[in-house]
Structures are given as structure tokens and as C-alpha cells.
Design a protein around this nucleic acid. Structure first.
Length: 575
DNA sequence: GCCGTTTTCGGCCCGACTGTTTTCAGTCG
């Protein structure tokens, strides 16, 4: 079963092959728009089953049919036809930076180059030296591009990219004077993974800033270097783009570089209908030739007659329509959070003591937090049973009093393969909060996993379902289950679903959190910290929540302690 | 191929940088 991301990839493949086949620009661009739409949509498998995929923006009759085929069979008629003209292996040639569809199509039809291996062989044999408009510099760039392609990791997880971005910023700030600087692109939109790092800044010394940037010692290569813009490559293939403009254009610049691409296209299409041309250089009034420049991003959206659109919502779905109607949701913010329900200590697999974690939680200004060490689980060395929990309770009371924060006792209890829990109900009943998670038997069938999770929701003591999909960037793709069935069960039983902010997880991902909200589910944003320094990972959970369009009312830990305890009690008493 | 707060037909974002060029096509974001 193909995931949304995989289907989006197939649509982009169709788009690329159509361009090579000489189809019209707008025809293949429609596939690109549809692919972006699919990325942010709820699971297509379920949409297609309900016939609702045709409601996705950019998906009409033709593309809708292709999506249906991809969902049911994993392939599409149209793709097969295109494969008759161009081999699938030609796609990898386009992965080489500097080679686009025109060049790839030319290399294939004129020189029979059908794969990356063919291209390497042709370069080595020198057969391309006689090709018109192909000089030695281009060939050298391709060689470098091939190396980068081979060494390139997949898209970089957001937390990792952010750490690198901060190092670049430190380098930039040590250079020529800057006025304002910000992360842009997918990093600012809090996408779960980023393809490259975009940074914008304003300065009166653009050329010097660019030069300083290009000389960053960690840069493996400088891809492009112009008067206002440069791109570098790090070893491993991550690309960093910097754009520098004068400060009075900061709003236009930030808006432009934050994207997404689809958001900008839609925004500009809308602007054109109002005789306005939007770019990073300002908003040009096509009627009177005046240029509106904006010192902040709010000004850009205001000039277009709409509400400010938070970066996390700029996906190109329906945010522009909502902003025009002034009906965008008011998104949750970090400052709204009053606590964190998921963290570990040295009582189980955490690195820091309960006291240290409590002090750190208090230092973040929380009203409450929950210590949720693991249950004993299968062969877990430090997991906690009834006795350990009882002893831990005394330590919690002492720490809570010392740091002036309400420390709740929780457990991250394993959901066993049959959906029962690793601790007995009478033990769970003594806890303030219960986070239930799947850690074992993750290869169960979709049906088994669905049953298992629903049964966990039905336990009156389960407050929160932890990292619900089980995916991890470093190891696991996660397990499959029927999202609709489980989310409906969570809503029905008053069980919250977690958005786990741990760097390797970010689970639930935003499209699923959005789906959960549509079922009326309450979400809990957690750090899943195993050391004091990781409590800040809750920010990543906030990012996903914002992408999902969640507001304060949707988030359990944006509520007061009394309201949280009432949420817990309501479920316990309802059963 | 998709879409509509002037349109169900006639539109469809915008600009920077590179290489190989005497004016621009291709690529990229």
C-alpha cells in the first residue's frame, strides 16, 4: 500500500516524464500541484475509499483517476505509457544538480544515456565533449553533482536541520554587519523533514555577507554565488541557500523565501487577478506602476487584502481562501503550553534524575508536568512495576514541593500485543495520568494493530495514546492501522492522542493530527524527553500542531491543571 | 489538467544565477 508521500512521488514522476515528452507546461504543472496537495492530505487510501480524493485542491478527473489506480494497484496506466518512451532509470539522472528535463531528454534521445551509470560512462569516455552548448565547466559540475547525488542522504529531519542552521547563523553573525536574519523555507514552515536550509537576511553589505557565507569552512562546495544570493553544499549533500536584500524589503523577502512553492504560486495567481505582481522585490501595482515594499510579512498579506497566514499553514491547500474570508484558525503557540505529560528519568531509561527533570520543567515556567517512566515491559531492565511506582511517588512529592510545580505521576505503559496493558488497572488507578504506547510486536497486521489500539483507548485509565504511529526517522516506518477507526475510538472514549516532539519521532505527523481533530480528538503535545536538555523538543510538537491547524482548545496541555484532571476523571468515571 | 467573489473558456508566479553565449535557454527554488 503506497503512502501519500509515495503517491506524491509517482505524480511528480509523471510530471517530469510529461515534460520530457513535450507536453504543455500547464498540463504537467497540474501534476506538480496535485502532488503537493497529496502530501498534506489525509491518507489517500481512506479518501479514495470514500470518493473524497476529488475534493483535494488541484485534483480533477484525470489526476483523480491516476490516484485511484496508484492506491489500488501501486501503478498508473499513464505512467506505464510514459515508461514506453523514457525508461524509469532516467529519473535518477535528473537527481544530478544542474541536469533538468530538457538536458535529460536530449541525453537520452541523442546519446542513449538512460541511467546515471550511462552518464558516468559517457563522461569518462569523453563522448560528450562534442555536444553543442556543453562546455568543460558544465561537465565538471555534473561530475560533482553525481558524487553529491550518490552520497546524499534523504531529506533531513527538522531537528537535525535546525541544529545545522544555527551553526550557519553563528557563522553569519560573526561576519559583516547584518540587520535582520531569519530561517525561511521548510524549516520555518516546520515541515517534518527539510530538503535544504533557506536563510534570509537584510544588510547594507550584501556582497560581503555573501562572500563570508561562501567561505564557511564547513561548505564542501559553492554551487552558486551572485550579488544577492548564494548556495553551498555540505558534505552529505545538504544544501544551504542564502538571500540578502536591503532591510526595507524584509517582509517581501521573508514571505518569498518561506514558500511553500505552491503557496506562493497560489498567492501570486490571486494577486495577478487583482493586477498586482508579487515577488521578493515588492508588490508591483500593474495599473499605476507603484511598488509596495513591506518591512514585515504582515504587510505583504495585508496589501493583498487578507489575514496574515502563519508559515506553518502555507502549504498551498486552502489557506488563501481562509485568509481572504478571515477565518484562519488561531493556532496554538508555545506560550499557551502549561505543562508536558511525557518525560523519563533515571527511574527508567532517562539520563537525568527526577529532581533534575522537575527543576527543568519548573524552569520552563510550567504549571504542571508528568513523570512518565516506562512500565516494566518485555525484558526492559529499568521499567517500573507497582513497588517502584509507590516509592517514586514519595520522591515526586518532595521534588514537586521544592520546585513549586505540580508534578503528576504518570507511566508510559506498554500496550501489549493483544491491546491489554503492562500494568494492572489497580496500579494505573493510583496514577494521575497514563500514557499508553506500542513498543513491541510492531509488525502486526493492520487489522490486529487497529484492534490493539482501540482496545487501549477503551481502557478507562488510558489518558493519552503515546506516539500513535510508531514511526521513527532513524529506524522504523511505523505500523499500519485504520486511522479513522482508531481516531473515532479516541474521540468516543475521551482519550487524547499525542504529538511526540522527540527528534526521531514527530508523531503524530501534521496531516494525521488534522484528521484526528476532525474527529473531535484532543491532542497532547509532549517532549518525550530523556534528559533535561530535551524538554525543549516540545517545540517540534507545537510546530506539527500548528501545521495541523490546532488551536488552544484542541490541546490538553494548554488547559489548566484542574481542567486536565477533570479530563482524566471524566474518562475514568464514564466507563 | 485544473479552476472561477469580473471567467465554465481562457487563463495559468516570478526572479536569480550559470554557462556559453553576443541575447538567452536551462535550471532552480
Amino acid at each position: 500500500m503506497l503512502s501519500n508521500t509515495e503517491i506524491a512521488k509517482k505524480l511528480l514522476e509523471i510530471r517530469t516524464l510529461m515534460e520530457m515528452a513535450g507536453e504543455s507546461f500547464y498540463k504537467y504543472m497540474a501534476y506538480e500541484k496535485a502532488a503537493a496537495s497529496v502530501e498534506n492530505a489525509p491518507p489517500l487510501r481512506d479518501l479514495v475509499a470514500a470518493g473524497e480524493h476529488l475534493k483535494l485542491p488541484g485534483v480533477g478527473k484525470s489526476i483523480g483517476a491516476a490516484i485511484e489506480q496508484l492506491v489500488t494497484s501501486g501503478g498508473a496506466e499513464q505512467l506505464d505509457l510514459l515508461y514506453q518512451r523514457f525508461p524509469p532509470s532516467l529519473i535518477e539522472v535528473l537527481g544530478v544538480s544542474g541536469i533538468g528535463t530538457k538536458t535529460a531528454a536530449m541525453l537520452f534521445t541523442e546519446y542513449g544515456i538512460a541511467s546515471l551509470a550511462d552518464l558516468e560512462a559517457a563522461i569518462a569516455a569523453g563522448t560528450l565533449t562534442s555536444v553543442p552548448r556543453l562546455g568543460s565547466k558544465t561537465i565538471e559540475n555534473w561530475k560533482r553533482g553525481i558524487l553529491a547525488y550518490k552520497g546524499r542522504q534523504r531529506r533531513t529531519p527538522l531537528p537535525q536541520a535546525l541544529a545545522i542552521a544555527r551553526q550557519v547563523v553563528a557563522h553569519l553573525q560573526a561576519g559583516p554587519p547584518l540587520e535582520r536574519l531569519a530561517f525561511a523555507g521548510s524549516l520555518r514552515r516546520a515541515e517534518v523533514t527539510v530538503g535544504d536550509i533557506d536563510i534570509v537576511c537584510t544588510s547594507q553589505h550584501a556582497a560581503d555577507v555573501i562572500g563570508h557565507f561562501a567561505q564557511w569552512p564547513r561548505a564542501e562546495a559553492v554551487l552558486a554565488e551572485g550579488p544577492t544570493k548564494a548556495s553551498i553544499w555540505l558534505s552529505g549533500g545538504l544544501q544551504i541557500d542564502l538571500r540578502v536584500l536591503p532591510d526595507h524589503l524584509y517582509g517581501n523577502l521573508l514571505q518569498h523565501f518561506t514558500g511553500s512553492r505552491e503557496h506562493n504560486i497560489k498567492l501570486r495567481e490571486y494577486a495577478v487577478r487583482r493586477n498586482l505582481r508579487v515577488s521578493e522585490n515588492g508588490i508591483l501595482n500593474l495599473e499605476n506602476g507603484e511598488v509596495i515594499t513591506c518591512t514585515d510579512e504582515e504587510g505583504v498579506y495585508a496589501a493583498l487584502g487578507m489575514q496574515f497566514i502563519p508559515p506553518e499553514l502555507r502549504s498551498g491547500l486552502d489557506e488563501i481562501e481562509l485568509a481572504r474570508a478571515r477565518t484562519l484558525p488561531v493556532l496554538i503557540q508555545s506560550a499557551d503550553l502549561r505543562g508536558d505529560f511525557h518525560m523519563h528519568t533515571t527511574w527508567s531509561d532517562g539520563d537525568d534524575t527526577l529532581e533534575a527533570m522537575t527543576a527543568a520543567a519548573a524552569a520552563r515556567g510550567y504549571e504542571y508536568h508528568a513523570i512518565s517512566d516506562h512500565s516494566r515491559g518485555r525484558a526492559r531492565r529499568f521499567g517500573m512495576g507497582a513497588d517502584e511506582l509507590r516509592r517514586q511517588r514519595e520522591e515526586i512529592a518532595a521534588a514537586s514541593a521544592r520546585y513549586g510545580i505540580r508534578t503528576l505521576q504518570a507511566s508510559e505503559v506498554d500496550i501489549l500485543p493483544d491491546g491489554s496493558l503492562d500494568l494492572d488497572d489497580d496500579v494505573l488507578a493510583e496514577l494521575d495520568v497514563v500514557v499508553a504506547s506500542v513498543h513491541t510486536a510492531t509488525s502486526q497486521s493492520r487489522e490486529q494493530m487497529t484492534e490493539r489500539l482501540i482496545r487501549a483507548c477503551q481502557n478507562r485509565y488510558v489518558t493519552i495514546l503515546g506516539h500513535p504511529t510508531g514511526r521513527r526517522f532513524d529506524s522504523s516506518r511505523g505500523y499500519e492501522f485504520d486511522y479513522d477507526a482508531v481516531f473515532a475510538a479516541a474521540a468516543r472514549t475521551g482519550t487524547a492522542l499525542e504529538i511526540d516532539g522527540q527528534a526521531a519521532r514527530l508523531d503524530l505527523p501534521a496531516p494525521l493530527a488534522r484528521l484526528a481533530k476532525s474527529y473531535g480528538v484532543t491532542l497532547a503535545l509532549d517532549s518525550d524527553a530523556h534528559r533535561t536538555g530535551d524538554l525543549a523538543a516540545i517545540e517540534f510538537a507545537v510546530g506539527q500542531a500548528r501545521r495541523a491547524g490546532l488551536g488552544k482548545a484542541d490541546v490538553l496541555n494548554a488547559r489548566s491543571l484542574d481542567d486536565v484532571l477533570a479530563f482524566v476523571a471524566r474518562k475514568r468515571n464514564a466507563a
